[in-house]
């Protein structure tokens, strides 16, 4: 799980061009949207694309988005659960 979260963090920083933030300043539990990293709706689209391109996971229910993309940890848990299926 730790390895996946570290990889995911690296991929998110690359995909979203987050050069203004240091990766070590963002914890795995920290919110990605709102008061956390401050991501927006375009970033949400990028994260959906990332899940599909890198992990072959298609978001079945968009309403689950806020829960899945809450933090790097919740994303990693979702990937782990759905990779097993």
């Amino acid at each position: 799980m730790d390895e996946l979260m570290a990889t995911l963090k690296k991929e998110i920083f690359e995909q979203l061009n987050l050069h203004h933030v240091k990766p070590e300043d963002i914890g795995y539990d920290q919110p990605l949207f709102g008061e956390g990293l401050g991501l927006d709706s375009i970033d949400a689209l990028e994260l959906i694309v990332l899940l599909q391109q890198k992990y072959g996971i298609k978001l079945a229910n968009p309403a689950e988005g806020p829960k899945i993309f809450y933090s790097i940890k919740t994303m990693a848990e979702y990937i782990t659960d759905h990779k097993k299926q």
Binding site: Q15, I42, L45, E46, I48, V49, Q52, Q53
Partner: peptide
């Protein structure tokens, strides 16, 4: 090769 593309450059 996949069905989805990164949207930012398009937007």
């Amino acid at each position: 090769t996949g069905p989805v593309l990164s949207p930012t450059s398009f937007i």
